[in-house]
Design a protein around this nucleic acid. Structure first.
Length: 154
DNA sequence: GCCAACGTTGGC
DNA sequence: GCCAACGTTGGC
Protein backbone atom coordinates (compact mmCIF):
# COMPACT_ATOMS: atom_id res chain seq x y z
CA UNK A 1 0.00 0.00 0.00
CA UNK A 2 1.34 3.39 -0.96
CA UNK A 3 2.25 5.76 1.79
CA UNK A 4 -0.45 8.30 2.46
CA UNK A 5 -0.36 11.85 3.71
CA UNK A 6 -2.53 13.63 6.26
CA UNK A 7 -2.96 16.89 8.08
CA UNK A 8 -3.81 16.90 11.80
CA UNK A 9 -5.05 20.08 13.43
CA UNK A 10 -4.35 21.04 16.98
CA UNK A 11 -4.70 24.21 18.96
CA UNK A 12 -1.23 24.90 20.32
CA UNK A 13 -2.74 26.12 23.59
CA UNK A 14 -3.97 22.58 24.23
CA UNK A 15 -1.29 20.53 22.41
CA UNK A 16 1.50 21.99 20.29
CA UNK A 17 4.24 20.45 18.21
CA UNK A 18 6.63 21.42 21.00
CA UNK A 19 4.53 19.27 23.34
CA UNK A 20 4.84 16.38 20.90
CA UNK A 21 8.59 16.83 20.76
CA UNK A 22 8.77 16.70 24.55
CA UNK A 23 6.48 13.69 24.93
CA UNK A 24 7.79 10.28 25.97
CA UNK A 25 9.36 8.71 22.87
CA UNK A 26 8.27 11.88 21.07
CA UNK A 27 5.03 9.98 20.64
CA UNK A 28 1.44 10.58 21.64
CA UNK A 29 -1.95 9.00 21.33
CA UNK A 30 -4.04 11.27 19.09
CA UNK A 31 -7.21 10.91 21.11
CA UNK A 32 -10.33 12.96 21.61
CA UNK A 33 -11.41 13.15 17.97
CA UNK A 34 -15.20 13.34 18.09
CA UNK A 35 -16.21 13.83 14.50
CA UNK A 36 -17.42 10.94 12.36
CA UNK A 37 -15.63 11.85 9.16
CA UNK A 38 -12.33 12.25 10.99
CA UNK A 39 -13.06 9.04 12.92
CA UNK A 40 -13.41 7.13 9.66
CA UNK A 41 -9.96 8.21 8.55
CA UNK A 42 -8.54 7.14 11.92
CA UNK A 43 -10.24 3.76 12.03
CA UNK A 44 -10.04 2.75 8.37
CA UNK A 45 -7.48 4.58 6.33
CA UNK A 46 -4.53 5.77 8.34
CA UNK A 47 -1.68 3.22 8.37
CA UNK A 48 1.65 2.85 10.11
CA UNK A 49 4.27 4.86 8.25
CA UNK A 50 1.85 7.45 6.87
CA UNK A 51 3.17 10.99 7.11
CA UNK A 52 1.35 13.80 8.89
CA UNK A 53 1.54 17.57 8.71
CA UNK A 54 1.07 19.05 12.18
CA UNK A 55 -1.09 22.17 11.90
CA UNK A 56 -1.64 24.82 14.54
CA UNK A 57 -5.19 26.18 14.41
CA UNK A 58 -6.41 29.16 16.40
CA UNK A 59 -2.79 30.23 16.46
CA UNK A 60 -0.82 33.28 15.48
CA UNK A 61 -0.12 32.59 12.76
CA UNK A 62 -2.18 29.52 11.88
CA UNK A 63 0.41 27.33 10.16
CA UNK A 64 1.78 23.91 9.32
CA UNK A 65 4.56 23.68 11.87
CA UNK A 66 6.14 20.30 11.27
CA UNK A 67 5.89 16.61 10.46
CA UNK A 68 4.92 13.51 12.37
CA UNK A 69 4.42 9.92 11.35
CA UNK A 70 1.98 7.22 12.29
CA UNK A 71 3.44 4.61 14.62
CA UNK A 72 0.22 2.80 15.48
CA UNK A 73 -2.86 2.47 13.28
CA UNK A 74 -6.44 3.01 14.45
CA UNK A 75 -7.48 1.50 17.77
CA UNK A 76 -10.36 2.27 20.15
CA UNK A 77 -9.89 5.63 21.84
CA UNK A 78 -9.45 4.91 25.56
CA UNK A 79 -10.51 8.44 26.52
CA UNK A 80 -14.05 7.68 25.37
CA UNK A 81 -14.36 5.13 28.22
CA UNK A 82 -12.71 7.23 30.89
CA UNK A 83 -15.36 9.05 32.89
CA UNK A 84 -12.74 11.48 34.16
CA UNK A 85 -11.64 12.47 30.65
CA UNK A 86 -13.07 15.57 28.99
CA UNK A 87 -13.54 13.31 25.95
CA UNK A 88 -15.63 10.75 27.83
CA UNK A 89 -18.61 9.52 25.81
CA UNK A 90 -21.07 7.51 27.84
CA UNK A 91 -22.74 6.31 24.66
CA UNK A 92 -19.61 4.62 23.32
CA UNK A 93 -19.76 0.87 23.84
CA UNK A 94 -16.43 -0.90 24.56
CA UNK A 95 -17.63 -3.91 22.58
CA UNK A 96 -18.29 -1.79 19.53
CA UNK A 97 -16.39 1.43 20.09
CA UNK A 98 -17.54 4.65 18.48
CA UNK A 99 -14.25 6.54 18.60
CA UNK A 100 -10.75 5.73 17.46
CA UNK A 101 -7.28 7.17 17.83
CA UNK A 102 -3.83 6.57 16.35
CA UNK A 103 -0.33 7.09 17.71
CA UNK A 104 1.92 9.68 16.11
CA UNK A 105 5.61 10.34 16.56
CA UNK A 106 7.42 13.62 16.05
CA UNK A 107 9.59 13.70 12.93
CA UNK A 108 10.57 17.32 12.58
CA UNK A 109 9.63 20.84 13.50
CA UNK A 110 9.97 23.30 10.63
CA UNK A 111 12.44 26.09 11.26
CA UNK A 112 10.10 28.19 9.17
CA UNK A 113 6.42 27.19 9.57
CA UNK A 114 4.24 27.39 6.47
CA UNK A 115 1.49 29.84 7.34
CA UNK A 116 -2.10 29.62 6.25
CA UNK A 117 -1.57 32.82 4.27
CA UNK A 118 1.27 31.21 2.31
CA UNK A 119 -0.80 28.11 1.66
CA UNK A 120 -3.67 30.23 0.36
CA UNK A 121 -1.42 32.20 -1.94
CA UNK A 122 -0.07 29.07 -3.65
CA UNK A 123 -2.21 28.11 -6.63
CA UNK A 124 -0.92 24.54 -6.62
CA UNK A 125 -2.56 24.10 -3.23
CA UNK A 126 -5.96 25.53 -4.01
CA UNK A 127 -7.65 22.14 -3.77
CA UNK A 128 -6.32 21.37 -0.29
CA UNK A 129 -9.09 20.36 2.09
CA UNK A 130 -7.73 22.86 4.61
CA UNK A 131 -8.34 25.74 2.23
CA UNK A 132 -11.91 24.93 1.30
CA UNK A 133 -14.49 27.37 2.56
CA UNK A 134 -15.84 26.41 5.94
CA UNK A 135 -13.54 23.39 6.24
CA UNK A 136 -13.33 22.36 9.90
CA UNK A 137 -12.23 18.76 9.59
CA UNK A 138 -9.46 18.09 12.11
CA UNK A 139 -8.04 15.05 10.27
CA UNK A 140 -7.65 15.58 6.55
CA UNK A 141 -6.10 13.76 3.61
CA UNK A 142 -3.28 15.55 1.78
CA UNK A 143 -2.38 14.56 -1.78
CA UNK A 144 1.14 13.57 -2.72
CA UNK A 145 1.60 16.65 -4.90
CA UNK A 146 0.33 18.91 -2.12
CA UNK A 147 2.69 17.21 0.32
CA UNK A 148 5.69 17.70 -1.94
CA UNK A 149 4.83 21.32 -2.68
CA UNK A 150 4.55 22.16 1.02
CA UNK A 151 7.82 20.37 1.81
CA UNK A 152 9.41 22.43 -0.93
CA UNK A 153 8.27 25.74 0.55
CA UNK A 154 9.00 24.79 4.14
C1' DG B 1 -14.22 39.19 20.87
C1' DC B 2 -16.94 38.53 16.68
C1' DC B 3 -19.27 35.76 13.73
C1' DA B 4 -19.85 32.54 9.61
C1' DA B 5 -19.99 27.84 8.72
C1' DC B 6 -20.61 23.45 10.24
C1' DG B 7 -22.32 19.16 12.85
C1' DT B 8 -25.53 17.41 16.18
C1' DT B 9 -29.74 17.18 18.76
C1' DG B 10 -34.41 16.70 19.45
C1' DG B 11 -39.34 18.14 18.82
C1' DC B 12 -42.77 17.43 15.68
C1' DG C 1 -37.61 12.81 7.76
C1' DC C 2 -37.55 17.81 8.37
C1' DC C 3 -35.57 21.63 10.27
C1' DA C 4 -34.86 25.09 14.07
C1' DA C 5 -31.98 25.64 17.84
C1' DC C 6 -27.80 25.03 19.80
C1' DG C 7 -22.78 24.25 20.58
C1' DT C 8 -18.27 24.24 18.41
C1' DT C 9 -14.57 25.50 15.26
C1' DG C 10 -11.38 28.58 13.77
C1' DG C 11 -10.04 32.70 10.90
C1' DC C 12 -9.88 37.37 11.44
Amino acid sequence: MAKKYWLFKSEPSSFSIADLEKATNRTTCWDGVRNYQARNFLSKQIAVGDQVFFYHSNADPAAIVGIAQITKAGYPDPSAFNSKSPYFDEKSDPINPTWYCVDIKHVKTFSKPVSLTELKSNLKLKNMVLLQKGSRLSIQPVSESEWKEIIKIS
